[in-house]
Amino acid sequence: MVEEKKQLTLVLGVIGADVHAVGNRILEYAFTEAGFKVVNIGVMASQEEFINAAVETNADAILVSSLYGHGEIDCRGLREKAIEAGIGDIKMYVGGNLVVGKQDWDDVKQRFLKMGFDRAYPPGTMPQEAIDDILEDFGLKQKC
């Protein structure tokens, strides 16, 4: 559980033309259960929608999902847009089936970290892993 003093606000969404709604629903449930304030912008969210939602809600982090393989195209430039909007320091996480085809995960991860994401998750990651990472990144919990 997040400590009492600060409830983190997360913007959650599925980027691009992606309509995978099941995982989005589960993530909303899991992050909410874990004590976060979740701003869920749902599926088919544009980069602008992520940035606007983060600015409007003064969010601590942006969580991007992409399940359909176009993640590489869709995510490019998101960090730059955040900088333009004056929230260049916001933590950004990305996860899912990020690329077309079976590719070496380390390569894929490096590509997304270079794009400006703080962490990237492969297919099959359980929500708890991201929850633990976020708590750790905000100094709220040691990872066991």
Binding site: A17, M44, Y68, G69, H70, I73, V100, G101
Partner: peptide, 25 residues
């Protein structure tokens, strides 16, 4: 998925980039 949303401009960009990087984007 771009074509599915009638976003033919984005599909076009995907075609070009696929040609450039040598794998389907």
């Amino acid at each position: 998925s771009y074509t599915r949303q009638n976003r033919y401009n984005e599909a076009q960009a995907g075609i070009e980039e696929s040609r450039t990087v040598g794998r389907s984007m």
